Computed example of a mutant assay.
Amino acid sequence: MNRTIRTAVCAVAVAVAGLALGLISCSEAVDQVDKAVDETYEVTYEVTGKNVDSIDFHGGGGKAMEPKIESVSKPKLPWTKTVTLRGIMPAAVMPVAADPEGAQVACKITYKGKVLEEQSADGLAAAGGCIAESPITG
């Protein structure tokens, strides 16, 4: 019976030691992510096209992995907006257009003069989305 108790106690001790080492590794990873999240970067969104009804975009609010979506209805084109984002938050802009004659949308995301993402779409209803990975992560 004593041998069984000792074996169980040893197994629990090994499990606790493994958990503690795992938590230390996780803690270090969380610290690295937190450091990256504290950095900011600035991007410029550009939208062009015809009859764009709305534009949704990450404006910098919210959490890095749950950004707050901001919207503009009936924007004057061409539309540009410069925003400051945090850490691993992706840059994203999504214009939407609908026109029986043929809708057209194009979007572009730039960072320090470099194009991170560029897309276009056309048709009866068009939604052109540009999503770019944070330059801080790469």
Rank of each mutant, 00 (worst) to 15 (best):
T4K: 14
T4G: 12
I5V: 13
I5N: 04
T7D: 14
V9C: 14
V9M: 15
V9I: 15
C10K: 15
A11I: 08
A11C: 09
V12C: 10
V12R: 03
V14T: 02
A15M: 11
V16H: 11
G18S: 06
G18P: 00
L19V: 14
L19N: 12
A20G: 03
L21E: 08
L21T: 12
L23F: 10
I24K: 07
I24M: 11
S25Q: 10
E28S: 13
A29V: 13
A29G: 12
A29L: 15
V30S: 07
V30N: 07
D31F: 04
D31A: 15
Q32F: 09
V33H: 02
K35E: 14
A36P: 02
V37Q: 05
D38P: 09
D38G: 10
T40I: 01
T40V: 06
V43N: 15
V43T: 14
Y45W: 12
E46I: 01
E46V: 08
T48A: 14
G49F: 03
N51K: 07
V52W: 08
D53Q: 11
D53C: 11
S54Q: 10
G59E: 04
G60N: 06
G61C: 06
G61M: 04
K63V: 00
M65A: 13
P67D: 05
K68Y: 10
I69N: 05
I69Y: 04
E70N: 09
K74L: 09
L77W: 00
P78Q: 07
P78D: 06
P78S: 06
W79L: 00
W79Q: 06
W79G: 01
W79C: 02
T82F: 04
T82K: 03
T82S: 11
T82I: 05
T82D: 06
V83Y: 02
L85K: 01
L85N: 05
I88F: 11
M89Y: 05
P90C: 06
P90V: 03
A91P: 01
A92Y: 03
M94N: 09
D99G: 09
P100S: 01
E101Y: 08
E101W: 06
G102D: 09
A103D: 01
Q104Y: 15
V105K: 09
A106R: 10
C107H: 02
K108C: 10
I109N: 01
Y111T: 00
G113D: 04
L116Y: 03
L116A: 03
Q119S: 07
S120T: 04
S120N: 09
S120P: 03
S120F: 01
A121Q: 02
G123E: 12
A127W: 03
G128E: 05
G128W: 10
G129C: 11
C130Y: 07
A132K: 06
A132Y: 00
A132V: 02
E133R: 15
E133A: 11
E133V: 13
E133I: 10
P135Q: 01
P135I: 05
I136V: 15
T137A: 02
